[in-house]
Design a protein around this nucleic acid. Structure first.
Lengths: 333, 333
DNA sequence: TGTGTTTTTACTCGCGCTTTATAAAAATAT
DNA sequence: ATATTTTTATAAAGCGCGAGTAAAAACACA
């Protein structure tokens, strides 16, 4: 691998001259610049970003810490952030935290150790205190889908309480009274907030929250099927099912169909997140839109503004969910 | 940020001693080791992997270059590779190539510049020649879902021709004669091989390949709907539809339903890849299993063996697809 | 021709760590 | 007690680059 030194030798100039044409800021005469450029091409020179980082303590790369590498939700998120950052010439380094405290912490450490200029994290298992403490370090931390008051300027979040409220209210408005709820793991902030919204909606319409119509799932397809099985086995009389995310809703739909339900007539189902495939289910799934791509762009913009000093950017920190009515929640008569 | 120097000072030993306990290979007495470890903890010391890489020219990280960050196929792939590598203490750096030649090349450059110990790539736009040339460089390249003869030892691939063959043959076996095919972008090797398999199956059963029953889609949901629309508008009389991947199949299903088809009776549909959501569609989608997770693990194992000298590993290079029969392809009578 | 400016280039140090070669200390043998 | 081996620690060089400072070259003006 050619180094800057060999380039300088070949071009007959000093090291720093080469360095200067690399970062093309300082004064270099056109003639020498050309010479250097030619030498670079000749040698197939590729600057080592590692060495660069060490010397300049800036890497032009931002770390992304997500829960999972797969799953439509995180896919959209990573994609939106990366795309937006790439335009600005920044790169991303992605690592998963698997919703596990240890792994999330080790993910942060990895990213910090790699001198990321900033980290955008979607973490669920670490405590707020940890995050606040971490934010005092040299690497700025930005949080996706999580609101921590002490560092709210670094948070991009969705109003999940409102989302949960909208979902259940939609069912109530359709005329349902026996509404079951499949929640997500309650240590996850968005899951608990969505549940909170569900309860608010029930309360507003004088419906009581019934433990028998409540199940905690895993945010995956299995959570939906397990939840519905639970309700059926307990002979719960329900006409509507609210799921805390789309994966669980789709799992519930499949389970329902396999157990003789005629969808959507026998059971109305609503999801949450509006991931792509909801629109390809049958019946198409009513859900709550979670504007992940926009939020990803907002996070990217935030680091562009804070870290890379791009001007003229205004950031929205809290996003609003929106009800998307489709076929899985028909009017009842 | 604490450096190795401050640790050495605090522990009252030399730099290199600290370095040795870090890499705990050479001889260090238990006593000094303990002293150093304590000093590290006290200072909250975190070794800078950047500096480490520069000095040792090894990073314990492997680059992953995928087409897209979202999409169930790539999600599974990234996840499988990462999980397997993480066990061995290696990290991944992921970057997308967007099936675009320039972007794929820049992805390679980025990863190489970051001194990845190896790169696992799923690329579609760059030429075989480029890949062969690249393989001569200092960073070993491994290819997912692509077979290049000259570097076959570094390839993990699926027998896509066989997959395409199995899909169409399944339809023929169900009794269909008017079988339409929605292919993927033909510059992608897997897409063109699947098509090849389709043609083989047709030939084997003396069915002629009909341009009117052929459409090239984009491997996304829209490709499926566009394709089916095309056939309908051209008044093609078809009873079966073979799609080159699951996303297109799901798009086609939706379009079919919206246009009065009674699925699966009026139109049998088969996909390809067996991504998770196929099992949650209605009717559940018959498809060709693409063992992505296994292939991901194989790729990870390959670099573990080649690069990190882990022993006792045998690698399978070519994987076989498998027909997964579900409800979208009923028997016809 | 000499002095003052401006433009261009070269040197040197250091980023935080690994890695020799080498010295010092401890353990063992004679 | 001394020589010899084994174990442990040190010092110094260098990985590839950036940045600040010093020096050289080019130019301008009188």
């Amino acid at each position: 691998m050619a180094t800057i030194y060999q380039v300088s030798e070949m071009a007959g100039v000093s090291l720093s001259t080469v360095s200067r044409v690399l970062n093309d800021n300082d004064y270099v005469s056109k003639k020498t610049k050309k010479k250097v450029l030619e030498a670079m091409k000749e040698l197939g020179y590729q600057p080592s970003s590692i060495a660069r980082s060490l010397a300049s303590s800036t890497t032009n790369s931002v770390g992304i810490l997500v829960s999972e590498l797969d799953g439509p939700f995180f896919g959209q998120m990573m994609s939106a952030i990366e795309e937006h950052l790439r335009i600005a010439g920044k790169h991303v380094i992605i690592t998963p935290g698997h919703s596990d405290e240890k792994k999330e912490k080790s993910g942060f450490e990895f990213l910090i150790g790699r001198n990321c200029d900033a980290i955008i994290a979607h973490v669920e298992a670490v405590s707020n205190e940890y995050l606040i403490e971490l934010s005092k370090g040299k690497t700025p931390i930005y949080l996706m889908s999580r609101y921590v008051k002490e560092i709210e300027e670094n948070c991009i979040s969705l109003d999940n309480v409102m989302g949960g409220y909208l979902a259940t209210k939609a069912m109530i408005n359709k005329g349902h009274k026996n509404i079951a709820y499949i929640a997500g793991p309650q240590f996850k902030e968005d899951a608990s907030n969505r549940l909170k919204g569900h309860k608010q909606a029930l309360a507003e319409y004088n419906l009581t929250f019934d433990e028998n119509l409540f199940y905690i799932g895993d945010f995956k397809e299995t959570g939906g099927s397990d939840g519905l099985r639970h309700f059926i086995q307990n002979k719960a009389q329900i006409t509507a099912l609210v799921c805390a995310n789309d994966e669980m809703a789709s799992g519930a739909m499949k389970y329902a169909r396999e157990h003789g339900f005629n969808l959507p007539k026998d059971l109305a189902i609503i999801g949450f997140d509006n991931v792509i495939f909801t629109n390809y289910l049958y019946p198409t799934l009513t859900t709550i839109d979670n504007p992940v791509p926009e939020m990803g762009r907002a996070a990217a913009n935030l680091v562009l503004k804070d870290i890379y000093k791009k001007s003229g950017i205004t950031i929205k920190h809290v996003f609003q969910p929106k009800l998307i009515l489709r076929d899985s929640t028909p009017d009842i008569n």
